[in-house]
């Protein structure tokens, strides 16, 4: 743990603060949420890493999707994700958000979560043990350290594609786009 290294704090305070203060919005979808209470309570105690659950997306910066995502849930996930302030990190938890898992041939469950919102890291398993959550968190620290946890930047950059995929599946979305889409966005990029 480099939490006590003062030089790092002085050089990159934003990065270090982001690393050690992950306030998590646990999106209670599917069966994975049953693994979260042991993580945050006395047995494994996520708070010693600075991870606490918060009640609203506006206060959080870590978005955990804990299980399969049905179409109706995807709608709520996109709205929650867009309400969170930057920088924000998304972690898919369990095998269902990765490739569908045991719902690989289901008619109503999405198969690849990273085609609809950007995902910074995955914790594989069905279900992952609470230890795996902490391994995932330490990997996320490494990614933040190396500037590789840039899902929120990718979302802004490829918003056309993300919004297109969302509308392809869910039909017309009843909320306005978060960023400028279409030609305007390409002009900004240019």
């Amino acid at each position: 743990m480099d939490r006590n290294k003062i030089g790092k704090w002085l050089k990159q305070p934003a990065k270090m603060a982001n690393k050690y203060s992950l306030n998590a919005v646990y999106f209670c979808t599917g069966c994975g949420i049953i693994e979260i209470p042991p993580v945050i309570t006395a047995r494994w105690d996520a708070e010693r890493f600075g991870i606490i659950p918060v009640a609203t997306p506006r206060q959080g910066n870590l978005f955990m999707i804990t299980g399969y995502v049905s179409l109706k849930t995807l709608r709520a996930i996109i709205r929650t994700y867009e309400q969170m302030p930057d920088p924000k990190y998304t972690v898919g938890f369990g095998s269902c958000p990765i490739n569908g898992g045991m719902y690989w041939d289901s008619y109503n469950t999405i198969k690849h979560l990273d085609r609809y919102i950007p995902v910074d890291g995955w914790i594989a398993g069905c279900m992952p043990r609470p230890e795996a959550v902490f391994i995932g968190v330490t990997h996320l620290w490494t990614l933040i350290e190396k500037d590789m946890a840039n899902g929120y930047l990718r979302y802004r950059e490829h918003y056309d594609q993300y919004r297109g995929n969302q509308e392809k599946l869910l039909g017309k979305l009843d909320w306005p786009p978060l960023y400028a889409t279409g030609i305007a966005q390409k002009e900004i990029a240019a």
Partner: peptide
């Protein structure tokens, strides 16, 4: 699934 979900392109 093949027609709908697999037709969504990766980013």
């Amino acid at each position: 699934v093949k027609e709908v979900f697999d037709n969504i392109p990766a980013i």
